[in-house]
């Protein structure tokens, strides 16, 4: 069925099914970390996750109907935000820890070995705490992730051709479906109408923090690459080059 004909419940069930599987770093961790070893583990994991992220995006109803140019632009704009929201979701029940993968968990203090990363860890932990306070539900999490993807490029491009305009209109309708799905997910929590409106506001306001941390993270990774602390390759290199 086309996403516009789906009920919010159906739409959420489709994006829940699209969720990527758990991913393992599968490296022999030599502790204590060095700046290079920690950066290498983080970028290796990000590269693996990126491949799965493309597969995830393609499973979001309506995404592959957008123009290929829009699909590329959206993914290159939001990839680090998506990785960070996933990290927050995995870490939400582990205060003070960042669960990058089941076999790669870091305490805040372990960030000390990489110059400039502690500040980013603190921002990630703070946003995770906020999600913990709000008792983020899985249905809400999957909607927020889809919202990040579809909203990522909305204010940085303006359609010129008829094809671009058509894709943009499809994108806006798709965002409507995701917003409807999030509203529906919130409505299932047994809150008053006012509390539902407030929750929607609080959840969507967190997205601006995630964009901010992602921008910081992007600058940090670019600087680590420039200083040759870490070798960035494959899909991650393509995404990073695209965004610097």
């Amino acid at each position: 069925a086309h996403h516009s004909a789906m009920s919010p419940e159906e739409f959420i069930s489709r994006i829940m099914e699209a969720e990527p599987p758990e991913i393992y770093l599968m490296e022999d961790m030599k502790k204590p970390f060095t700046e290079a070893s920690m950066m290498m583990s983080l970028t290796n994991l990000a590269d693996k996750e990126l491949v799965l992220m493309i597969s995830w995006a393609k499973k979001i109803p309506g995404f592959v109907e957008l123009s290929l140019a829009d699909q590329i632009h959206l993914l290159k704009c939001c990839w680090l935000e998506i990785l960070m929201l996933g990290l927050m979701w995995r870490s939400v029940d582990h205060p003070g820890k960042l669960i990058f993968s089941p076999d790669f968990k870091l305490n805040r203090e372990e960030g000390q070995c990489v110059e400039g990363i502690m500040e980013i860890f603190d921002m990630l932990l703070a946003a995770t705490s906020r999600f913990r306070e709000l008792k983020l539900q899985r249905e809400e999490y999957v909607c927020l992730k889809a919202m990040i993807l579809l909203n990522s490029n909305l204010c940085t491009s303006s359609p010129q051709t008829a094809e671009e305009l058509e894709s943009r209109n499809k994108l806006l309708r798709l965002l409507d479906s995701v917003i409807d799905a999030l509203v529906w997910a919130i409505s299932k929590l047994g809150l008053s109408t006012q509390q539902q409106t407030l929750r929607l506001g609080h959840l969507t306001m967190l997205l601006s923090h995630i964009r901010h941390v992602s921008n910081k993270g992007m600058d940090h990774l670019s600087s680590m690459k420039r200083k040759n602390v870490v070798l960035v390759y494959d899909l991650l290199l393509e995404m990073l080059d695209a965004s610097t």
């Binding site: 491949v51 290159k76 393509e238 695209a242």
Partner: peptide, 24 residues
């Protein structure tokens, strides 16, 4: 540089009907 050349892997993964997991 065209979008396709600049984002070779991303383009390939988006266009390919095979699961990216298999490609990886």
């Amino acid at each position: 540089t065209s979008l396709k050349e600049k984002h070779k892997i991303l383009h390939q993964l988006l266009q390919n009907s095979t699961s990216p997991v298999d490609l990886a």
